[in-house]
């Protein structure tokens, strides 16, 4: 274990939990589709930090880094596809307002 890890663990988890709340709130309470995607991005940022932190405090940095690299590659592909879908919605409705989508919360 790294020497600094115990002191760093709680502030980091706290920060990550806050980032999760912020991102989830953004996804749930926005009417703008692009902003919903930004909320998802923030969620992914939080989880990236969590994996790196897990690697740091257990001294498995190499494993954590290789996981994060895979995660980032996948994240880019998912977000690109999502942006493609959002642009498709915009082409049909002419706006990015989620209220045009029927019962988004299902």
């Amino acid at each position: 274990m790294n020497e600094l890890a115990p002191q760093l663990f709680w502030p980091c988890t706290l920060g990550i939990a806050m980032i999760f709340v912020i991102g989830l709130y953004c996804v749930l309470f926005t009417y703008n589709l692009i902003r919903a995607l930004i909320g998802l991005e923030i969620l992914i940022k939080g989880v990236t930090l969590l994996i790196i932190l897990a690697g740091y405090i257990t001294a498995h940095e190499a494993l954590a880094q290789s996981l994060v690299i895979t995660l980032i590659v996948i994240e880019v592909v998912v977000i690109t596809v999502a942006v493609g879908v959002v642009l498709g919605i915009r082409k049909h409705t002419g706006s990015l307002d989620a209220r045009n989508i029927r019962n988004l919360k299902g």
Binding site: T48, I52, L53, Y56, Q65, I72
Partner: peptide, 11 residues
Amino acid sequence: RLNSPLAAVFE
């Protein structure tokens, strides 16, 4: 700062 330079470059 968390000893993960390679992942940081990717990020």
